[in-house]
Design a protein around this nucleic acid. Structure first.
Lengths: 210, 210
DNA sequence: ATTTGGTTTAACCATTTGGTCAAATTTAAA
DNA sequence: TTTAAATTTGACCAAATGGTTAAACCAAAT
């Protein structure tokens, strides 16, 4: 028996999780090797199975956490605002920009793995508790009040997600095509916060609400 | 010797290429199996190596073609216009929408594989002859003429690419999150052509140029 | 009919890979 | 200190996988 609850050594377990996260993000599920994860964690390969039974079980745990991080919470900033779509856009852009500066590789990982096996989506949405109903309602209200130009609320949200996420998902392409170095690209995306906010406002807000 | 030039049976070779394309797009490089490609083509596995030496060589050929398709030509439609950014936006949105309706899975494939091994980008850009200089110049001219709001030309192009490509790259996520069925989602993206065009114009054009 | 050279196949190979297991080691309770 | 349980490891295994090869096949030229 161990003093830490539940009989698992958290040191080793988190060591494995961190190593697995790195390797899975770098190589994807199919490209990742259990041996590489063990090496990255500096432990014996058998320990991976001791703590997580199988590669797929280990991946599931990593990926569910990644999927949750993929949807940063905007509620805290949103509640400080006046409930307008303008505030929703600001909160959304801010929350995603923060997330992306911390984990720029995450969206490409999530998107790649979901395209590899889309059937996971069902369970993922349920397990992560992600739900668009609330933000959809905010946008719909903005349209009804005349703050926002008449449009499908889903368009507004998808466009905002696209503007914020796309540069990170396509980083290797864009960075080579439009920039001299990876650093120049990262500095560019770092300045996008205000730019995307203004871009979105011009595109969807009634001129009176600008 | 065979009557067809160069001594290769084009039937079998294209059969392999088509099968490989399907499997690589479905499973990615790491997830694809040579046996599965052979089965898909209805031929013996050894033939794959007879015609393409190795899995990597076969993949390279498929992927270079996919990468070229990823950058549809906008020159033809562009030359019919007046050289304005408005026309550039229309031409870009049209060319990409056409490409995406034909091969909706292509962007996710290209992006995933490039993220898996970004070092390919160098050679890919060279081999595909993709170059942003021309469209960059068009945008810069639009800014100088006052047609477009002052902004980094790269922002305009990246935002347009993001708006058009993102829904397809994230299809499984968005379709589950915002739509009742895959069909509903596809019908939605089918109507995005005008929507994205108008969205872009509102966001970047001087009000006098709308 | 025979030869010739590209094409196709089944059988086979070496290596990799996820996974298992029994023994060794560590930890902490008795 | 002894003991019992959890942890860690090296050795090992079966299956899968990319790749090879020698033989068979086949169309066309002689």
């Amino acid at each position: 028996m161990v003093s830490i609850k539940e009989g698992n050594s958290p040191d080793t377990e988190t060591l494995i999780l961190e190593a697995a996260r790195k390797v899975f993000i770098r190589k994807g599920y199919d490209g990742a090797r259990m041996q590489e994860i063990a090496d990255e964690a500096g432990i014996n390969k058998a320990l991976l199975h001791y703590y997580f039974r199988s590669k797929e079980k280990l991946f599931d745990q990593i990926f569910l956490a990644a999927f949750k991080d993929f949807w940063p919470s905007i509620k805290s900033e949103l509640e400080q605002g006046d409930g307008s779509v303008k505030c929703l856009i600001r909160a959304g852009v801010n929350a995603y920009t923060d997330m992306l500066m911390k984990t720029p590789y995450l969206p490409a990982f999530v998107v790649s793995e979901i395209n590899r096996s889309p059937e996971r989506m069902e369970g993922l949405l349920q397990a992560s508790g992600v739900d668009a109903a609330f933000v959809m309602a905010v946008v719909q209200r903005g349209i009804d009040r005349g703050e926002v130009l008449p449009m499908d609320p889903r368009s507004l949200l998808i466009n905002m997600l696209g503007l914020v996420l796309f540069p990170f998902i396509s980083r290797p392409v864009l960075s080579r095509l439009f920039f001299d170095s990876e650093e120049a690209f990262m500095s560019f995306v770092g300045q996008r916060r205000q730019e995307v906010y203004a871009f979105m406002c011009r595109a969807v807000l009634h001129s009176s609400a600008l």
